[in-house]
Design a protein around this nucleic acid. Structure first.
Ligand code: FES
Ligand code: FES
Lengths: 147, 147
DNA sequence: CAAATACCGGATAAATTTATCCGGTAATCA
DNA sequence: TGATTACCGGATAAATTTATCCGGTATTTG
């Protein structure tokens, strides 16, 4: 569904958000990669994308790390994260790979997939990172599996 | 959403199906690639997968080519094609990349994505290649764009 | 100011996906 | 039967994605 980069980006954001919401704790790359079970260096690349896009905040030096401001927690949606990392392909592209998805020359699955894509867009648009962080905090969702 | 290979496979199947339904016309690789706007050699690889999976029929030699039998037209679903080419990742995997999607240790988006994935599975399961071929035949759907 | 910490950014490498090439085999037809 | 046609299958190459490495810069702390 999403690229690995995007999966890591979403999981990382939620983890950072969870720690930020919990008494503004700032978190380093090592922690993040361990908690979401992702390759450290690659996760760093993805986070740089999100920082540049203004969706995550980073602080250098000792006591530095990544965090989400109160505003970011409240306003950043999954859709923004997906767009920043994977672009709009999954959110707007044709399911059968036609150069553009439109009702002018629709693929034979256009209308059926439109329903699915709309629902996906809706889910991503209406869920903030802060909200999902809360779910993880409450033990209702996990960012890695312990097997 | 799907891999390029899968997109080509679906489009090719539908085109073959359309020609087969239309007085059992058999079609060659060259035609297929031209009609669905895909690279010829790569499309051949994908079609070989589908032939081996029994979802498409091929005939060698002059007057040979690809076709869908009446039964294939009636029974082969998009879901079978997607599974044969891309496997079950998109149809069963976790949206956030957890090693397995389950309610035991669900990711924070599990239930929202379950709804979307179920709908996707339903669409793929309930649409046969023959049905979509009919749509293309009636000018209600396209397998390439003419710009 | 000096040392340690942690993100930044570019270069590089490995893995996977996408795409191409070409000789082999089966089938048709003259 | 011989020539042509068209799919088959393995090898190879290009492109993209995923992953790693390392020196640079900013920041804190003593
Ligand atoms: S044209 Fe294919 S999904 Fe819209
Ligand atoms: S656990 Fe993530 S979608 Fe089910």
């Amino acid at each position: 569904m999403f690229s690995k980069a995007c999966e890591y980006g979403i999981r990382a954001s939620i983890y950072i958000g969870q720690q930020s919401a919990d008494q503004g704790r700032r978190v380093g790359l090592r922690d993040i990669a361990a908690e979401i079970d992702s390759p450290e260096a690659f996760t760093a690349k993805v986070l740089q994308l999100l920082v540049r896009a203004g969706l995550v905040t980073s602080v250098k030096g000792p006591t530095g790390g990544f965090e989400l401001t109160a505003e970011q927690l409240r306003t950043v949606t999954l859709r923004q994260i997906v767009l920043a990392i994977d672009g709009g392909e999954m959110l707007q592209g044709c399911a059968l790979g036609l150069r553009q998805c439109s009702a002018q020359q629709p693929c034979p699955l256009h209308y059926q997939f439109l329903a699915i894509r709309d629902q996906l867009n809706e889910v991503l648009r209406t869920h903030t990172v802060g909200e999902l962080a809360g779910k993880v905090h409450d033990g209702l969702g996990f960012l890695r599996q312990f097997s």
